[in-house]
Structure formats: C-alpha cells, structure tokens
Design a protein around this nucleic acid. Structure first.
Lengths: 228, 228
DNA sequence: CGCACCTTTGAATGAGATCAAAGATGGTGG
DNA sequence: CCACCATCTTTGATCTCATTCAAAGGTGCG
C-alpha cells in the first residue's frame, strides 16, 4: 500500500518519543493504569498474564515494528504485563494521539485495523498449537515463530540467532513445565533440526522445524480494499 | 460513545444485506476465497481450524453484534471455518464497503479498532485458560463464556440456557477429548454449579462457576480518547 | 571466589488420552 | 405413529505423555 507524505509523517511522529528499557525490565505491569502504547524500534519483548493459580502465560512476542500495549484502547488498566526480553527501544504515544491520528488519516486507521486483525489470527494459530499439538510441536512452534521474526529482521544469519529466553519462559509461552521444555529441546537437537549453545540457537533444518511445528506462514496480503 | 446520525446510518447500512443459515451449516470454509464479512443479528456460530494432524481447534464463538470474518481484511483466503451453532441470521458486507465506511467515518474505524483489540485480549484469556489450567477449569471457562454472552443478550432466564454444542465441540474448543469433557461436566454437576438436561444447561451457582473458570470480566471501558 | 540462577537428568506420580462398549436421543422414512 | 439408524452421551479399563519432586552440573555476575 502506498502512503501519502502526510501519512508517513504522521506515522513517524508516533514513534518520535523514544524510550529505552534494560533487558528483563518490566514496561507495564498487569493491572496498572495504562495510558500509553508503543511501537517497537529495537529489541523485543513479550506480554504475559498471571492466573489465579499462580502460573504465568506468555501471550505473544513483539518484534521491531509491532505495537504492544494496544490494549489501552479498550481497557483502562493493562490486562497484561509487558517485559523486555532484550534491551529495548520503543516509541511511546498516548491514546489521544492515536485517536487524533486515526481521525485525521482514516486510511492509517484501516491499516491499524488490519494489523489488529492479523494479530488475532496469529493468536488463533497459537491457540491451536497449545490446544491441539504435542509438547514437542509446541516448542518447535515457539522456536519457529521467533526464528521467522528474527530472519525477517535480518538477525538470523545462517539460521543462527540469540534466544535470551529461559526454558521457564518457553514453558510459560507453550503451556509446559521448564523440565519438559528441556527434554523437548534436547530431542529437537537429537533430531537434527536445531543446535544449541548457551543462549545461541541455530536452526539447522528449517523445513523440518516448520513441519514439526505445523507452521503456517501468515503474511498479510491484499490491501486492495482500501480506497485510493 | 455517542454516534452521530450519519454514523448510525452507516452502521445500519452494513448489516442491511441479511442472510440466514441453518443450524450446523458452514458459512465459510477454511482456505476458501473470502470476500465478505458479517455482523451477527440472531443466533450464534463458531470459528475453527483444522491442524495438520487431523484435529480441530475451535477458536471462539460469535454472538449477536459480533463481527465474524474480519480475517478477510488481512488475508485473501479464509484462515478459519465459520460454522452455525444455531439457526443464524447475519448481515453481510464486502471489504470494499468496510474500507469506504472507515474512510468516511474515521470514528467508526476507531471503534472497530477498539473491538478488534478487545477481541485480541479475550483471545489471550482463552490462551491462558487452555495453556495453564486444569481440564475442569477449561470446561468451566467455556460454559462461563457462553453463559455470560447469553445472559447479556437476555437469553438465559434463571441461569437456564440452550447449549447446542456436542461434547466433542466443547472438547475442540478447550483442547480436550469428548470423553474427558463428559467427565468434567458430570463433576461440575456433582459439585452443584450446573445442572444438565439434554442440551439444556442451568447455571445453579454462578459465582462458583466463575471461580472454577478463573473468569475475568472484560467489559471494555473508556472510549474517552476518541475525538468529539 | 562464591552465590544465584539456569540447565540437565532421573524416578515416581498423575491428569488426561485412548480404546471399547453399553445406554440415550432424535430425526427420518415407511 | 412407530421402527430404525445415526449420532451423541456415558462409563470402565488401560496406557501415555507431561508433571512433580529431587538433586547434580553449568554459567555468569558481583
């Protein structure tokens, strides 16, 4: 889709207020009042929530270009915790600013809507992974997702990438225990689809990994429905 | 939020093309070209997807006022199957129509964006339920969700409602087998939180059910960020 | 160097799946 | 109106994958 100069400027303006966070630090905590949203500029993070029973679910990861915190559009208090996985830089903006932007540039509003819809679909894929596949496939799906994102951003030379997640994090994202994550990762290693070395991960068999994960590439297509 | 007359008319226009489906019929099948979206006017439905391994995951249920099929905004082919749970009436409209509406009435675009965001959050709740809670809690969560929707629509007098889902459906929505769903429902009955009679369900202890389900009420608040 | 935290591995346990078969239920056609 | 058949529910027995509990290596940081 082709954006006008004014639209591009408006988008750039959104991310003008850059702030940084140290790896591991919490950007927003679940239940806190939330008046801001973000655009990721460097690094990555995840959103999670605690359940009544004390366990944590990691909902998704956000990479460069993603917009965490959009929950602020619908809820006064944050429904989720945002935590920096790596050192992180994000542009921050208020709900009011987004509201004004959408009203002045309706096509950008439509674009955002499309992003939100695409996000819902990828959430659905994750739901299917956790609800209906084996532990091994879930771990593979997690790795596959991160790998594809890093690759898209040019941060996975030769299939090698940094994975600064603990096995407990991976468990919280896949609905498994850290112990079982460990076993599954070892088995993926033995099967020759990945190699591990500390927090370095190398995808040695991309096709194999995707197959294990039942991975479906969801590249949004078709913005033709947007007027001029 | 207060809508202008023109905005209200535009919204009403969206649902003007009403169509109906018989209970159990498929509205859109996964992978089919999808050029339409819908607004539910009566009855309810669900969206689901098949995995490579042959099992099905039901993603969510849509009730009166919800908008299934928004995936068409981002993908050419439908990522999910829509199936009528009850006899169903929906207004249908094209992507182009929605595109035009958003551009002419940016505030409606913002409203839609907010809905999409809220939907993502409730998807996240479901993810946490499936990833991190017991079979019993998952079944309770499913019942709780349907019950609250029916109640909101005034279709649950005295906590009684019609639940035209097979236990297999419930299993596909919660990531369980139908056999285990059966056991969990019986146990919820024995615990006195529900009573069952064919496809009639009565919630006899609403608080208890919500507690079992770790239910969180997500009523969107705060539209104050939208310009006048 | 020492302390936290993370990874790895083993053994025992348990929740949920699988397999199998007997009741209900309801829709259909005769 | 009834009989029949398909589908759904229910229950039992067994099995398996993942959890839990426990403890021994690694790793990096202060």
């Amino acid at each position: 889709m082709r954006l006008s100069g004014a639209e591009q400027a408006a988008l750039r303006d959104l991310e003008s207020q850059e702030r940084t966070w140290r790896r591991g630090s919490v950007v927003v905590r679940e239940g806190e009042a939330l008046r801001e949203m973000f655009v990721v500029r460097s690094g990555w993070l995840h959103s999670s929530a605690m359940l009544g029973n004390g366990s944590r679910q990691i909902m998704r990861f956000y990479f460069c270009g993603d917009m965490p915190g959009l929950g602020a559009l619908a809820f006064r208090d944050s429904p989720e915790t945002l935590t920096a996985v790596t050192d992180l830089g994000m542009g921050a903006f208020s709900r009011e600013k987004l509201g004004a932007l959408v009203c002045e540039h309706p096509r950008l509003g439509a674009l955002l809507l499309m992003c939100a819809v695409a996000e819902r679909i990828s959430m659905a894929d994750r739901l299917a992974s956790i609800g209906r596949t084996s532990a091994r496939a879930r771990v593979a799906a997690l790795l596959c997702e991160v790998y594809h994102s890093m690759k898209r951003l040019g941060q996975a030379e030769n299939g090698e990438l940094l994975l600064p997640l603990t096995q407990e994090d991976i468990g919280d994202a896949t609905g498994l225990t850290s112990v079982h994550v460990n076993r599954m990762m070892r088995r993926l290693g033995e099967a020759g689809v990945i190699e591990r070395n500390g927090s370095n991960l190398k995808v040695t068999n991309e096709e194999g990994l995707c197959a294990e994960a039942h991975f479906i590439d969801r590249t949004p297509t078709d913005l033709g429905w947007l007027p001029g």
